[in-house]
């Protein structure tokens, strides 16, 4: 009997840690989305596609550098930057001309981009599954409480999440650009009136948000098979997280990702076939009591 009792909580525990590592990815992607939403008020449907491009670029860069650990580290640096560059071109080329127009147009433009990006990925990388190897240092398992094996890479993810959160907090709260961006989120005309180039601020925020999507893509690459269509579900999940946390609030994104990741992983334990429903239910419950999300929205 003892054995049974010790196994069940262990299963729950390990599932919780799996959920937490998933949370990290979700948070990194959703924080980029919420940043763009908060300042530019664009629900960026193409965010998921940028995440996918990040993952595919990671595959290529890793392969280019011989497929070893060095390849992964290079991918971690290069791939998000590549995604940021793509988003910079899109922003300067198209988005900046539409800020004065209806938000619906901006949303549809991001959808157009997600269609184009999706097909470009198909064109460049083909339709097959790709896999990115886990770097050597993170291969294998570490024993957690009571000898529970836990993948090292997931431990790395668990550390990466808070690091990104803190860096992002420092960026938005302690730097001049972050302060301007937050001011522009509240009143973009006033910020322009005091002589600040709002257009440039918007471009930087957009690029940083997209960089985070790319970063999420690179980090997720070793844990899943990189494939076309990986963007479709993720963008919906990111939307849910952002809504749950409060639009534009980075800590809200963290909280939302935490709730989402945990309800998802524990839900699978309770009801394997329909575990995916639990995070959605969590969102509905949260919104019934707090229609504008858990934390203060910038809107």
């Amino acid at each position: 009997m003892d054995a049974v009792y010790s196994i069940i909580p262990a299963g729950v525990l390990s599932q919780m840690f799996v959920g937490l590592s998933r949370t990290t990815i979700l948070f990194i992607v959703a924080s980029g989305l919420t940043l763009i939403l908060g300042v530019l008020r664009i629900p960026n449907v193409a965010h998921g596609s940028l995440y996918m491009i990040g993952a595919f670029t990671a595959f290529t860069v890793t392969k280019l550098f011989g497929g070893g650990s060095a390849g992964f580290w290079m991918a971690l640096i290069i791939a998000p930057l590549a995604v940021a560059l793509i988003s910079l071109i899109a922003e300067r080329g198209m988005f900046q001309f539409l800020y004065e127009r209806e938000h619906l147009m901006l949303l549809l433009l991001t959808f157009a981009f997600s269609l184009v990006f999706g097909d470009l990925v198909k064109l460049v990388w083909g339709g097959e599954y790709k896999s990115v190897p886990v770097p050597h240092i993170f291969q294998g398992f570490v024993p957690l409480f009571g000898g529970l094996p836990f993948p090292r890479y997931n431990l790395f993810l668990l550390i990466a999440g808070p690091v990104v959160a803190i860096l992002l907090w420092l960026l938005t709260n302690k730097t001049k650009m972050g302060k301007i961006a937050r001011a522009a989120a509240v009143d973009r005309e006033m910020v322009g009136a005091v002589g600040i180039n709002v257009s440039r601020v918007f471009a930087s925020v957009f690029v940083i948000g997209c960089y985070l999507a790319g970063l999420g893509g690179v980090l997720v690459a070793p844990t899943v098979s990189v494939t076309l269509g990986m963007d479709h579900n993720l963008i919906i999940e990111a939307f849910l997280i952002v809504i749950m946390g409060g639009l534009g609030n980075i800590w809200g994104a963290l909280l939302g990702a935490l709730i989402f990741g945990l309800t998802q992983s524990l839900g699978i334990l309770i009801w394997p076939k329909f575990g995916i429903i639990f995070p959605y239910l969590a969102v509905v419950v949260v919104l019934l009591f707090r229609p504008t999300g858990l934390l203060k929205s910038t809107w």
């Binding site: 008020r41 629900p43 938000h103 939307f239 995916i276 959605y280 229609p291 504008t292």
Partner: peptide, 28 residues
């Protein structure tokens, strides 16, 4: 569920909840 929210917020929540319906149809 969604009507209390305005404009884009409404749309995003609707996309998300609609996806729940999709998931159920897809899995059941």
């Amino acid at each position: 569920i969604c009507i209390r929210l305005s404009k884009l917020y409404f749309g995003m929540l609707q996309i998300s909840l609609g996806s729940l319906v999709w998931v159920i149809v897809y899995r059941w």
